[in-house]
Write a protein that binds this DNA or RNA. Structure first.
Lengths: 164, 164
DNA sequence: CGGAGACTCGTTATACTATTGCAAACTCAG
DNA sequence: CTGAGTTTGCAATAGTATAACGAGTCTCCG
C-alpha cells in the first residue's frame, strides 16, 4: 500500500489522492527544507536551494544536465560539479533521491525519516511514483545470509494504473 | 534466504556454500548457455560467447569497458557497440544481469527461470552476491496501487558476513 | 579580534558510460 | 537462389560523472 503523501509524477494519480494545491503532502516546500537544515545544522546554500527548487518544480525526475540547463539565473554558465555537489548534499541528507536505472533525481516524497523508497516507473507515460514498502523484505533476505544492509535501491518498471 | 546456487564474488562465502570446483552450481558454463540458446532458437555468436565467457570468468561484476579490454583476441580494436550489443542480448535473455547502481554486468546465478535478482553489494570488499527473494514484495506493494510490474531492480549496499 | 579547521565554491579538464546511424555481411526459411 | 531479418564493422557522438586544486567563507574557540 502506498503511504499517504506519496509523490507521483502522474497527474491523474495525484487527483485520485485528492490533494489540494494549498496544502499538499505531495512534497516538501523549500521553506520546509530550509527549516530542516537549520535544525540539523546543515547549510542550505543558494545552489542547493536552487537545485532543490528545480526538483520540486518538476513533474518528472530530472537528469543532472537537465537541472543544469535550468540554472541560468546567475549569468555564469553552470558547470556539472555545481549540480552534482548539490545533488550529493540533497540525496545524502534525504531531501532527494537518485533513480539509478534512469540516472535521474527527484525530490523526496517522505521526508523526515530515513527510508528506502520504491520507485514505480511507467514505461508508457514515464511517470514515476515513490511508494514505500513497510518492512523491507530485502532486510530479511539479507539477514538470513548475515549481510548487513545499510542502504537499498528498489525500482520497478511496468504500467501504471492509468495507462493499463 | 539465499537460494541454492547463488553466485557470489566473495571467495570465502563460496567456501561456506561447500561448492566444488568440478560441479559447481555457482554459475553456468558456456556450453550450457549455448545449449539453452539452441533450444530457444537464439544465436549464440562468437562475440556473445566471448562476452559471456569473460563474465563467467570474472570474480566481480565488470563494466562494459573492462569487458572491452579483454576482447583483444581478434586483433581489431573492439568498439563499444560490440560489447553493448552482446550485453543487451545476454541480459535480455537472462544469461546476465546489469547492476544499475554500479553500471556493471555479471553472469546470472539462477538461470532457467525468469527472476528478479537481488544484489548484495559489500562496501568493504566490493563483493557482490546474487540473492533471491521468494515472493517479490515490490509486486505486492505495487499491486495495491494498481501498478503492473514487469521488471524490478533490487540492490542493497552494506557489509557482507565476512567483513562484519 | 583572530587564527585554525572544516566546509563550500569556481574552474578546467578529463574520465567513464552508452547510443546513433549506416552499410556490409551473415543466416535461414521458402 | 532469393529475400527478409538479424548481426556485425565502423566512425562519430551523446550523455553521465568525477578529479584536482586553489580561493573563498563560515564557525568555533581562545
Amino acid at each position: 500500500m502506498l503511504s499517504f503523501g506519496c509523490r507521483t509524477t502522474h497527474p491523474s494519480f495525484r487527483k485520485q489522492q485528492k490533494m489540494t494545491a494549498a496544502h499538499t503532502h505531495d512534497h516538501l516546500t523549500l521553506d520546509e527544507v530550509a527549516a530542516s537544515c537549520r535544525e540539523r545544522g546543515l547549510r542550505f546554500t543558494d545552489i542547493r536551494r536552487q537545485v532543490m527548487g528545480i526538483l520540486l518544480n518538476s513533474e518528472k525526475p530530472l537528469g543532472a544536465y537537465a537541472i543544469l540547463e535550468q540554472m541560468t539565473g546567475d549569468g555564469s554558465p553552470a558547470q556539472p560539479p555545481k549540480v552534482y555537489r548539490a545533488l550529493d548534499f540533497l540525496v545524502g541528507n534525504g531531501f532527494a533521491h537518485k533513480i539509478a536505472t534512469q540516472s535521474t533525481f527527484t525530490a523526496c516524497a517522505h521526508p523526515g525519516q530515513p527510508h528506502t523508497p520504491t520507485f514505480l516507473i511507467c514505461k508508457s507515460c514515464d511517470s514515476v511514483t515513490e511508494a514505500e514498502i513497510p518492512s523491507s523484505p530485502i532486510q530479511e533476505a539479507a539477514k538470513a545470509t548475515g549481510f548487513k544492509v545499510e542502504g537499498a535501491v528498489l525500482e520497478a518498471e511496468g504500467i501504471c494504473p492509468d495507462c493499463a
